[in-house]
């Protein structure tokens, strides 16, 4: 096959670019530790969330000295609990599931972003360095009231944070 010299050079350059992209993504996963939403959780019947120990009462729960679990239910057209209050500087693990259709759980302006699929539970662990208020939006179309689906995430200063009993 007759390939022009310039074209060969271009081909080599293109391959280097591609391998470079794969390398940076791999570094992001292994080096920086950006893990993907995965299949670590069991499936769940979306019509039976009331009987599920984790999702019957959507809530924030302290599970370690600096570790919190947040159980979130997304449904047409709200998130529960709302607002979600967590302390700054802790490991916060979100468990999010849907009671009806496909939604998302997306904290605006951050990389906290996951699809929420009925029957599946999305988990992700994040740390908020600074106190502040963030908007949570559903960024997957979920029906005619989709644009009204929002909630707030309030990151409290570490020393002011207090978990209310039975909060939901």
């Amino acid at each position: 096959m007759n390939i022009h010299t310039y074209e060969k050079l271009w081909l080599v350059g293109a391959m280097l670019l591609i391998v470079g992209f794969i390398a940076t993504v791999t570094y992001g996963a292994v080096g920086v530790g950006v893990t993907m939403i995965d299949d670590s959780e069991e499936t769940i019947d979306p019509t039976q969330l009331d009987e599920d120990e984790r999702f019957s009462e959507p809530r924030v729960e302290q599970v370690g000295e600096n570790e919190y679990d947040v159980y979130v239910v997304a449904r047409q057209f709200m998130f529960q609990p709302d607002p979600i209050e967590v302390p700054a500087g802790s490991d916060v693990t979100f468990y999010v599931t849907s009671a009806d259709v496909i939604h998302s759980f997306s904290v605006a302006g951050t990389n906290v972003n996951t699809m929420v699929i009925p029957g599946e539970v999305s988990t992700m662990t994040v740390e908020f360095d600074e106190p502040g208020e963030y908007g949570i939006v559903c960024n997957e179309y979920c029906g005619s009231g989709h644009h009204a689906m929002e909630a707030m995430l309030i990151v409290q200063p570490e020393d002011e944070f207090e978990l209310e009993e039975g909060e939901n």
């Binding site: 996963a29 993907m36 939403i37 995965d38 299949d39 972003n113 029957g119 999305s122």
Partner: peptide
């Protein structure tokens, strides 16, 4: 589907 639950990394 990078952000889909239920599909492994």
């Amino acid at each position: 589907q990078y952000l889909d639950p239920g599909i492994s990394e």
